[in-house]
Computed example of a mutant assay.
Amino acid sequence: MSDLFAPEGGWRVRILDLSGGAQDNITEEIGGFGTLMHANAFARRYVRDSVERCRVPGMSSKDVLEAWFAFGEDAVVLDAGDAGWKSTTELGDFVDTRASAEERDWRSLDPRQDEFDLEGDEE
């Protein structure tokens, strides 16, 4: 697949439950990303947030990593091949360094955010 063209329906990101609580470890698939860059940025921030949710004050990097593999969520950009973001390339940095709020903000990149906004806006 070419990096220039999104698959029909847009790029998709698969969320994987590392705790094994979901069938085939798949929690959900999120579609509608117009560009590969958008899908990659979402996946990166989603995993970054997951790592931070596993972090407890005083944990070593090794402890954070073990907690993430036991309880965290990974994200994979489907059909992107080598052009898709992979958690393995940055996981070491993620567990070593706390994330800023912006680095964790996957919600602002979620193509479903308009659906979420509408739920609370109507009176």
Rank of each mutant, 00 (worst) to 15 (best):
D74P: 13
E66L: 14
E52S: 08
G32R: 00
E123N: 12
I26H: 00
G20Y: 04
A6C: 02
T97M: 08
Y46G: 06
D49T: 11
G58K: 08
R55L: 11
L118E: 13
S2Q: 11
E102L: 11
A83Q: 10
D105C: 09
R45P: 01
A83R: 10
F69R: 13
D17E: 05
A99W: 14
E102T: 14
S87K: 05
F5M: 10
D82T: 15
A70N: 13
G31D: 05
G21L: 10
L4S: 15
V47L: 00
A70Q: 15
E123V: 08
S61E: 12
M1F: 14
E103L: 04
A67L: 12
E90T: 08
A39G: 02
R107H: 11
A75F: 04
D24A: 15
R48T: 14
G20L: 07
S2I: 02
A22M: 11
F33P: 00
G84C: 07
S60H: 08
C54L: 07
D93S: 06
R98Y: 11
G10I: 04
Y46F: 09
D110C: 01
T89V: 09
D82A: 15
D114I: 06
P111D: 00
F71E: 13
D3L: 09
R104E: 06
T35F: 13
G20P: 07
T89Y: 05
M59D: 04
D93M: 09
I15E: 02
N40E: 04
D74R: 08
Q113N: 09
S60L: 10
F69V: 15
T35Y: 13
A99K: 08
L78I: 06
F116I: 11
E119C: 07
H38L: 03
I26P: 00
Q113Y: 09
Q23V: 15
R48I: 12
F71C: 11
N40W: 06
E122P: 01
R45Q: 03
F5E: 12
A43Y: 01
D117S: 05
D79R: 15
G10H: 03
L109C: 00
T89P: 01
A83F: 08
G34P: 09
C54A: 10
D121I: 13
D110I: 00
E73R: 15
R12D: 00
L4H: 15
R107M: 09
A101I: 13
M1S: 12
R53Y: 14
W68H: 09
Q113F: 07
M59P: 05
M1I: 03
T97F: 12
D63A: 15
A80W: 03
D63N: 10
D3E: 14
E122I: 07
E73N: 14
D121T: 15
R53W: 14
F5P: 07
S50N: 09
N40C: 02
W85Q: 02
L36N: 04
E66I: 08
A67R: 12
R104L: 05
G20C: 10
R55P: 11
D96T: 10
G9H: 03
D79Q: 12
G31S: 07
F116Q: 04
E102K: 08
V51I: 12
V64N: 02
V77T: 03
E123R: 13
G72P: 09
A43T: 03
F69G: 14
